[in-house]
Design a protein around this nucleic acid. Sequence first.
RNA 1: GGGGAUGUGGUGUAGAGGCCUAACAUGCAACCCUGUCAAGGUUGAGACCGCGGGUUCGAAUCCCGUCAUCCCCGCCA
Length: 589
Amino acid sequence: MYRSHTCGELRPGHAGHEVTLAGWVHRRRDHGPLIFIDLRDRYGITQVVFDAALDGAAHAIASEVRSEYVVQIRGTVRLRPAEAHNPEIGTGTIEVSASGASILNAARQPPLYISRDGNEEEALRLRYRYLDLRRGRMQRNIILRHQIVKFIRDFLDHEGFLEIETPILMKSTPEGARDYLVPSRVHPGQFYALPQSPQQLKQLLMVAGFDRYFQIARCFRDEDQRADRQPEFTQLDLEMSFVDQEDILALMERLFVALAAAVVPHKRVVVPFPRLTYAEAMDRYGSDKPDLRYGLAFTDLRATVAGSSFAVLRDAVARGDAVRGMAVPGCAGYSRRQLDELVELARQAGARGLLWAAVPADGGEVRASFARQVPADELAAIVAALGGQPGDLLLIAADAPRVASASLDRLRRELAARLRLADPDHLAFAWVLEFPLLEWDAEEQRWQAVHHPFTAPLDEDRDLLASDPGRARAKAYDLVLNGFEAGGGSIRIHQRDVQQQLFDLLGVSRETAQEQFGHLLEAFEYGAPPHGGIAPGIDRLAMLFADEPTIREVMAFPKTQQAADAMLGAPSPVDERQLRELHIRLRQP
RNA sequence: GGGGAUGUGGUGUAGAGGCCUAACAUGCAACCCUGUCAAGGUUGAGACCGCGGGUUCGAAUCCCGUCAUCCCCGCCA
């Protein structure tokens, strides 16, 4: 054994004990005849004292030691003098008086600071990820992530769920994201696909009668990256039989409330989770994943301005466009330049423009970008409709509904960030329900599944599939957390005729359906139970629980935005021999 | 595919056409120092300014290209 204790566990009760510790040299404070070394492992930090007068040999070794050396130390635990306590660390009331030391391994000067949270370029951190991971921030994040996954496993086990693994080598399907492909050696010219999610397999597990399934599943999508998107990521994949939407929502609510209480007890969760329909979310927040930690909700102004003397507003209503606004507290004093900035933000989101009105805090006259275009009483009516209070800045978008939503959403998030409206210790979970089942793809002139082709329509919208498919809503639900999509799921179609109707709408021929999904369709003919599921994203959850700005901060070895591994140098070219075995000839780009 | 930001000793920054033979902090090295905990003090080493080209008498600085990293739009059933 290299050690008798870890660097985080010694307490005053150990005083007088002979101990052996092993770890990394966190910091070294050399006073000549007296040297202090903070010894670190993942459990904590312990101060070791080398006194030349007590043990010259140990002191001589301590003189050679440098930061991040791996050392083993023998010594006696003793209480620190009261004035030398360090309340910052758990072991701060004791220290180890060294009677022996050995250097297990020397270390070069690290390219990044380990003993403090530095501000290095992320490229450097990723290249030396194993050093970055030594730091307190990363150690805490990785441990938190472990606790999250462990809690989920235990919770679902208690609920009667079975964890079942599904293959990583799967089959490519045309729907959804771009696949990562793996060439087959045995089947020349053919490829496996890495799973975008185990969607079809978990449905087959329901047909198999496993009833309650989950998996901490790695998923792969070859799409461009974002702060909250990586080419491979982890989902809690879950599916249940003999349930409806309410059962799934209730289970998830219990899970996440208990999870947050267990691993981030300082964070506040509001129960029950608020519920919004997709239409409400888009109308009131311009987003299907609104951050509900703050207000800044939008108000529909069409009724107020339908007869406006200002053509921009009147025509927008006549055209069927949206006219929406929000009141931003405390921003009435914005300068012309600041207002222009907001207008520019709206334009970047596709808006034709942005109207604004400022209600002075001192009760003076309302300033407005469109003051000359409307009479005073109409301006007052708009201010009243938006609930404008003294000090408020009112922002109004008149555009196609999508554009109005996008631009006001952009402004809402920007202003909330500037005004620091989002409480970092608030976990604002919410459900977004009643998503449309289909959306029209103008380019390909066909319907596309909003969620996926196996999502069931709402019972009351069943008939719309034949008469007005675009209006049919789905038994689909997204779990939203602090402005991120934390997970999505649906109740699945388990009846062959409904599935066929969907495929017909999606323009999937019987041959294509048979080729792509034949196994699933066939399975449904052998007795498929009603079933549904959900797939919360573990990375995003961990990111939000850890107060981190990106999911890379909660992944041990994330990839760069170009989907590369900066440490391993992946992807990389391979030998011609390997290519030949795989029957692959490269086409130069 | 598009828009934007960044790139200067090990690390983080400063530098805005000549003051740069590149500054500051920290880290690193040597020495001094008996209670520190981001120890302190003295001395010292360390970067041809991402890479390539151009403009100029002169480029870290201006221009073009390129590479890398990050943010956003598209994309992500």
